[in-house]
Design a protein around this nucleic acid. Structure first.
Length: 563
RNA sequence: CGGGGUGUGGCGCAGUGGUAGCGCACGUGCUUUGGGAGCACGAGGUCGUGGGUCCGAAUCCCACCGCCCCGACCA
């Protein structure tokens, strides 16, 4: 490919609205362009990278026996009404009516369609197990896109679906995907770690996310460097030291004027935050007030709370809503509350004689004990893991890191097949729902993650497996020596004939421009041909990732490019 | 949806009431050719949109829209 013909441009300055390195570099080097918030075009270079990433995924999916197909982007809403998601999912799902006034949706995912196909096609246990996948555009109207290609609203995802007779079959399919994903991310040059994760609204019994560590990552991972434990903070259940056991003392009201925060309260009473109980207030999608009680030195993890309380769409409660349930913001506790659903962190439930709100402005209680002073509706693990807390498997201190989710695998179970009546006839002659799993990788996000992991201050440094072209020819001072252009053209043409297209910067630009662009664009090899290199015995070959430079004879260079 | 920014030529930016500018990029010509070259000439802007104030608005006021960041949210 001649650069003079390529549809691209490089930018000398960073785009003003880009912060993450991958975003800056992909825009500056001419790989992508933004059309709107969270909506991007892939320019020819970017599209080539995406196709190479897809090819890696395709090969590994095929290898485990997953069959490629393609399912529609636009779905009749009826299907989503059947599984109930039409009603459960909020404004992140784009909906419209067709000309006949029928409700339609833009697909966010394809469980419904797979289950619909299964109920049409699968009759007998002899047709299972089965694994299918496709690459398809998804649209999710995220409340906030960010980070260039990291979090977008329209994107291509590889999603696969496994269909098994039973849980044991699902376990096998899940394991195959786990291994395929590990190979995919390794081939992409990504150090992905699999972490246990929340199953979210997908339902199901188990899930892992494949995360790459990144300071801009939106997820917090809990990692143990001693034993290798890893989990998303949404599900990580760490060990903290047991509270001292003590006999319950009599409840005692104490004036605490102005002490509306735990820090104020602890300072006022001269105690530590660990000796207090903090009440936080939420309202769920059904309008139910949910009160979560955690120890004063800890934070509520809303995912854990939502799962424990079987609540969806939690939001912080307003002061009036809290008062309506008989509690006082700033001085709140479940003592004397009415109509609130009270969830107590298990550590608080095991603690005695904590300081908690008296539900009266300016007052708290000492010696509050769960069970004696108020009755929880539920006791559960509700808190955010903290750096230094104990690893759940080995007890060593854990560390927290930010991560980007590049892939996920879910054990779905029969949620969708049962709802849609996708059953098979077993050996026992009875109908059974098919057991499903679902597995995703965001292609564009993976591309961005590769750049995050493979760049320097000068630009991108693609791993060979995903580079848009294996090499970038740069001709310098071609006017001084007609051989420069001829040699470059010959190398370019022979590589092309051998099925290995290379990039050739044939533009009439100064050496500085060309070499700088080559480093920005990031092909694994930069081959410089100039009168000087010819005098030195051939072409200069630079390994982009390491900066290593050697003069090689032209025959050797040709062999590298062709082969 | 809350908070904070921002919107002026392709990109990056200056311009806070009185003739729309700078750098880069772009076009033509000449020179130049190993690290974002030089000279000359030139093209390119409804100053996000709509109202309002004013003799006069990129600039002041109001509303709306787009985009970015933080938070909420995130099958």
């Amino acid at each position: 490919m001649r650069l003079s013909q390529l549809f691209f441009t490089t930018l000398r300055d960073d785009p003003a609205d880009a912060e993450m390195p991958s975003h800056r570099l992909l825009v500056r080097a001419g790989y992508v362009r933004q059309l709107g918030a969270g909506i991007y075009s892939l320019l020819p270079l970017g599209f080539r990278v995406a196709k190479r990433v897809e090819q890696v995924i395709r090969e590994e999916m095929d290898r485990i026996g997953c069959q490629e197909m393609v399912m529609p982007v636009v779905h009749p809403a009826d299907l989503w009404k059947e599984t109930g998601r039409w009603y459960q999912i909020g404004p992140e799902m784009a909906r419209f009516k067709d000309r006949g006034g029928r409700d339609m949706v833009l697909a966010m995912t394809h469980e419904e369609v797979v289950a619909d196909l299964l109920r049409d096609i699968v009759r007998s246990y002899r047709q299972l197990p089965l694994m299918v996948y496709h690459f398809q555009t998804k649209f999710r109207d995220e409340p906030r896109s960010r980070g260039g290609l990291i979090r977008v609203r329209e994107f291509v995802m590889k999603d696969s679906y496994t269909c098994d007779l039973d849980e044991a079959g699902l376990d096998t399919s899940y394991e195959k995907h786990y291994e395929a994903y590990s190979r995919i991310f390794e081939r992409l040059g990504l150090q992905a770690i699999a972490v246990a994760s929340d199953v979210g609204m997908m339902g199901g019994s188990a899930a892992h996310e494949f995360m790459v560590l990144n300071p801009f990552g939106e997820d917090v991972l809990v990692l143990c460097e001693t034993c290798g434990f890893s989990a998303n903070r949404q599900v990580a259940r760490v060990r903290v030291s047991e509270p001292p056991g003590a006999a319950a003392l009599p409840l005692e009201e104490v004036a605490t004027p102005g002490a509306t925060t735990i820090a104020d309260l602890a300072a006022f009473l001269g105690i530590s935050a660990e000796e207090t109980a903090k009440a936080t207030f939420f309202v769920d999608g059904d309008g139910r007030l949910v009160t979560a009680i955690v120890r004063g030195d800890m934070e509520v993890n809303e995912t854990k709370l939502a799962n424990a309380a079987k609540a969806r769409a939690l939001r912080p409660a307003q002061a009036e809503e809290i008062r309506a349930a008989g509690m006082e913001p700033g001085y709140g506790s479940p003592i004397g509350a009415r109509g609130a659903f009270v969830v107590v962190d298990d550590l608080v439930a095991r603690s005695s004689n904590l300081v908690a709100g008296a539900n009266r402005e300016g007052f708290h209680y000492r010696n509050v004990n769960v069970g004696r002073d108020y009755a929880p509706d539920l006791v559960a693990d509700l808190t955010n893991a903290r750096a230094g807390d104990g690893c759940p498997t080995c007890g060593a201190p854990v560390v927290l890191r930010n991560g980007i989710e590049v892939g996920n695998i879910f054990k779905l179970g029969t949620k969708y097949t049962a709802a849609l009546g996708a059953t098979y006839l077993g050996e026992d002659g009875l109908a059974h729902p098919i057991v499903m799993g679902s597995y995703g990788i965001g292609v564009g996000r993976a591309v961005a993650c590769v750049v995050e992991a493979h760049h320097d201050e000068r630009g991108i440094a693609w791993p060979a497996e995903v580079a848009p072209y294996p090499a970038h020819l740069v001709t310098v001072a071609a006017a001084k020596d007609p051989r420069v252009h001829e040699i470059a053209e010959r190398l370019h043409d022979r590589a092309l004939a051998a099925g290995r297209e290379v990039l050739w910067d044939d533009r009439d630009e100064s050496p500085g421009v060309k070499l700088t662009d080559a480093e920005l664009m990031g092909m694994p090899l930069v081959v410089t041909i100039s009168p000087r290199s010819l005098a030195a015995g051939g072409a200069e070959v630079t390994v982009r990732a390491t900066g290593e430079r050697t003069i090689e004879p032209l025959e050797a260079v040709e062999a590298r490019l062709v082969g």
